[in-house]
């Protein structure tokens, strides 16, 4: 359970990081929270020659918000900060919920938002709500920076678009639409410390009438190598007056769209069924919240 020998860097600025990653290339790994990286190193799945600790780089940390434009979350922002942020809770509730379910309290105090996406585990908690909320990531290299939607950034199980010399610096979350609400939930054996068998985030916006679905994002986790957008299911509800029958159809469509595998946590069949259950529950919750019926954001 010992780490291989490596050289450790603790740069103070983004520029220094870019210089290091440009120079060291694939032999280096970024150390953010370390909650995935160090375990993989202990288990000898990774043996990087260099670790670049980005925790001293202030510009990569924190949550900021500008009304009308949305939020910016630095890649090295701790999950616990997101979990406890009033702003995230108020504006991006699904992300707040997912952050609260990631690992244990100890893990959340160390882990970062950027790490959760860069590690690109299919069972990760935060990518589905981020994709549902329309998050974009900013990828930077010495050559410059680019923005792309998170769903285009994550390519597969532990695969992202990050090329040599590139780092993820921040997440851009658009201002939530009026009369919209987002919700997240998961299926697992226990109510804490769980690796999700299935998870899902829903972000639903209503027209002025408070009944017609204006836009909808449904994103499933742990049922495909990447956060999977339930395109068919969304199509069933968008532009329609929200009702039980359509909701059920959408849930069934999501279940068909899911592409799960069987593993130690659950069978593919069970996962597929749970997609429908989560879809039904989350759609109803999000609709209720967006239309102002019954429960509010809590």
């Amino acid at each position: 359970m010992y780490l291989n020998d490596f050289e450790y860097f603790a740069p103070k600025t983004c520029g220094e990081i870019l210089d290091l990653v440009g120079r060291l290339g694939t032999k280096a790994k970024i150390l953010a929270g370390g909650t995935d990286l160090l375990i993989m190193m202990k288990e000898k799945m990774l043996k990087p020659d260099y670790l670049i600790d980005i925790n001293d780089v202030q510009e990569l940390k924190g949550i900021s918000y500008e009304p009308g434009k949305g939020a910016v979350i630095g890649t090295a922002t701790k999950i616990s900060e997101i979990e406890h942020s009033d702003l995230i809770r108020e504006k991006y509730f699904a992300l707040s919920q997912a952050a609260g379910e990631l690992g244990s309290a100890q893990v959340r105090a160390m882990a970062t938002l950027g790490g959760n996406s860069c590690h690109a585990s299919p069972a990760a908690e935060t990518p589905p709500p981020l994709v549902a909320l329309g998050a974009k990531v900013v990828v930077k290299s010495i050559a410059g920076e680019k923005e792309l939607p998170l769903e285009e950034f994550i390519l597969g199980n532990r695969k992202t678009t990050l090329a040599e010399g590139e780092i993820l610096t921040k997440f851009l979350l658009p201002e939530p639409a009026p009369r919209s609400a987002s919700r997240y939930s998961y299926i697992g054996l226990r109510d804490a410390m769980e690796i999700d068998a299935v998870n899902m985030a829903v972000n639903l916006a209503l027209e002025d009438d408070g009944r017609t679905v204006k836009s909808l994002r449904m994103v499933m986790g742990s049922v495909s190598p990447v956060p999977l957008i339930a395109v068919e299911a969304q199509g069933i509800l968008i532009g329609q007056v929200f009702n039980q029958e359509l909701m059920e159809k959408a849930a069934q469509a999501a279940s068909v769209e899911a592409n799960p595998i069987s593993d130690i946590r659950a069978s593919a069949e069970y996962r597929r069924e749970m997609v429908a259950v989560l879809a039904r529950r989350l759609l109803q919750q999000a609709f209720n919240a967006a239309s102002g019926t019954k429960e509010g954001n809590w």
Binding site: L189, R190, D191, A192, M193, I195, I264
Partner: peptide, 9 residues
């Protein structure tokens, strides 16, 4: 991966 009940259970 061996799941003992947590305080939540």
């Amino acid at each position: 991966d061996y799941k003992v009940p947590t305080a939540m259970e």
